[in-house]
């Protein structure tokens, strides 16, 4: 035992570059690898496997290889009994993307001034304001949406307020795209404010002064100094809002009245009443691939910018 140890020591001393001691640091990461593997990767792999399996007659699936789930996104049997191009799923997917993009844009437009305002406050008030921004997260999402249903609903505070300005009585602002969007923006805006605030707070005030000294007006300063420097916060905020907004189910149904299906409800329908798990999984995989592509593009652009700087 001591012999081998001695030899090992000797040879290690002879060529330190060739023999490295076992790096135990990787072992320390084992728990996080296990969590990543079992809680994140495995479920995704299962969904991917289901998407290429054969559909069960009453829901469920049988292992196999079958791409029907994917072809159904574009082609289905029509009312005449012939296979035809069916744009309805593309329409639903596109509508979902547009809704998520609009939500992200509105969140951004509202979050930048709010974050800027918070960043200007004294440190104790700053802490309080950031706490207030996160406050809604302490309550369940469904309750927050219900609160909006009361605010916009018949005889709710907002229609009542508008009546003062001549709106017809008994007005309801529910069940339209605007109501959906309002609830979506409300739900996701803290996810935008926090990262944007973090990068605005780090902004060096002297750089803004320097921009003014160099005869940059406010617009130029915003565009050429403030926005580029806060871009990392804006991009991570946009990702944090856009990605979960793609899967929104509650707001479109409760606020929008569910008259136009979103991707979340479409997937739900396929696993439920539609009894078509492979198709539901195929849409989920497509959503995942789309999100990945968007994220990769953003990451590449960020990396290129960093390299340029």
């Amino acid at each position: 035992m001591s012999d081998t140890a001695h030899t090992a020591h000797a040879s290690a001393g002879a060529s330190p570059a060739r023999r490295r001691p076992l790096n135990l640091a990787y072992l320390g990461l084992l728990p996080s690898w296990l969590i990543m593997g079992f809680a994140l990767l495995l479920p995704i792999l299962i969904v991917a496997a289901v998407s290429v399996s054969t559909r069960g007659a009453y829901g469920g699936f049988e292992w196999g290889f079958d791409l029907t789930g994917y072809s159904q996104i574009l082609f289905n049997e029509g009312w005449e009994g012939e296979m035809e191009f069916t744009p309805q799923y593309l329409i639903i997917i596109l509508r979902t993307i547009v809704l998520a993009a609009l939500t992200t844009l509105l969140c951004l437009v509202l979050a930048v001034p709010v974050s800027y305002f918070i960043a200007q406050q004294s440190s104790s008030r700053k802490a309080l304001l950031v706490y207030l921004v996160t406050l809604p997260f302490w309550m369940s999402l469904i309750l927050r949406v219900y609160a909006w249903m009361i605010i916009l609903g018949k005889d709710g505070p907002l229609p009542r307020f508008l009546e003062v300005f001549g709106a017809p009585s008994g007005l309801s602002l529910m069940y339209n795209d605007g109501a959906t969007l309002a609830a979506m923006v409300y739900t996701y805006i803290p996810l935008m404010v926090l990262p944007v605030f973090a990068s605005i707070e780090k902004l060096d005030g002297t750089l803004i002064e320097a921009a003014h000294d160099l005869y940059g007006n406010r617009w130029v300063t915003l565009r050429r100094v403030i926005l580029p420097l806060t871009a990392p916060g804006i991009i991570s905020g946009a990702i944090l809002v856009f990605v979960p907004a793609l899967g929104a189910v509650l707001e479109p149904i409760l606020m929008g009245g569910g008259k136009q299906m979103m991707m979340g409800s479409l997937i739900q329908l396929q696993f439920g009443g539609g009894r078509n798990w492979p198709f539901g999984s195929a849409i989920a995989v497509m959503l995942l691939v789309f999100v990945m592509i968007v994220l990769i593009i953003l990451a590449l652009r960020a990396a290129r910018k960093e390299a340029a700087a």
Partner: peptide, 17 residues
């Protein structure tokens, strides 16, 4: 039957597309 259920799903999806 699976065939009838597919028709139900088709009606619902086209209704809310």
């Amino acid at each position: 039957s699976p065939k009838a259920q597919d028709l139900v799903t088709r009606v619902w999806t086209q209704l809310l597309q």
